[in-house]
Design a protein around this nucleic acid. Sequence first.
DNA 1: TCTGGGGTCCTAGGACCC
DNA 2: TCTGGGGTCCTAGGACCC
Length: 357
Amino acid sequence: MSEKRRMIVHVDMDHFFTAVEEREHPEFKGKPVVAGADPKAGKGRGVVSTCNYEARKFGVRSGMPISKAWQLCPEAVYLPVNYELYARVSNEIMGILRGYSDKFEQWGIDEAFLDITSRVKEYAEAEALARQMKNEIHAKQKLTCSTGVGPNKIIAKVASDFQKPDGLTIVKEEEAEKFLAPLSVRKLPWIGRKTEQKLDALGIKTIGELARYDPTVLTEHFGAMGAQMYLMAHGIDRSEVEERGGIKSLSRELTFEVDTGDFGLVLNNLDRLSEQVHEDVLRHGLFFKTVTVKVRYENFETHTHGKTMPFITNRLQDLKKTAKELTQAYLRPERKIRLIGVRVSSFTSAEKQKTLA
DNA sequence: TCTGGGGTCCTAGGACCC
DNA sequence: TCTGGGGTCCTAGGACCC
């Protein structure tokens, strides 16, 4: 019995944050635009969140320290990240895309997978449908996206990244291995900087080299991920497109403008972060059991310390008290602190909590 | 290169239970 | 007393995603 061939689409909005900003501010058009931390004339300490293609011409990239971006392109328009605005626009786009599929999966704020197997019979029809999506998003939102179509999520995602911006790339099942082979392993999802380095040490740079490698050796080096990488390199991926389940954790963190040894300041901010997390907990109607704090020292050494309580709670005082207790051990006079964070997890919803009570 | 912020998932070890 | 096997929960750290 042969399974029906699937038809999967991946949609990735082009430089989403800065594209929304350009739409809202036509005067930015044609200029380099960078969304991220305050550059503070080259002294800022955050990173670039997104930049437009004009800024990329200067070498600016996502994830780059904002101070480096300032060196490369001081004349760019620098904007703070307006997450609420982007989330509103994202919701409208996701609403449009949902209409094109039976199975839908949002991925981050600006990407989505669609299973359109039941709606098309062949790749030409899939291409037409993908083009229709792009046109509707452009007509209604004045934004462009890059789209990939393939027999599974991995191939669709790599395909959407192949031509940018405003791209549309179709990769048929029978062409998938040949399409992937010359690309860097870094193009595969889940292969980041560290894994790329480890693969490089094994003499593996391209997806084709990964596909020809001994899978048992990959499993020895990378565990379950090794087997997964080997399958991906062969264009194999059986994972379903499915709506993400409920939220698993809520957190807030803060990097100080200057590393600090002022523990009063640290604890005040810890309280503020706890209050913000607590607001989110109430907004989602959740009860939590686990509190985790995060501390990063000036040398970037980072620790987390958590506690699971023997009861479920949604009270601010429980969160504040636990976070403070967990943080105390890290407050050492000889160590300045760069970042603190508060996270809650092990959730139960309010409805479930009522039935238990 | 001097490294944000909000998330998810995996791993490995230890506690504890039957 | 020197010893099992399975299951679950918890913790800390790490890699990855956008």
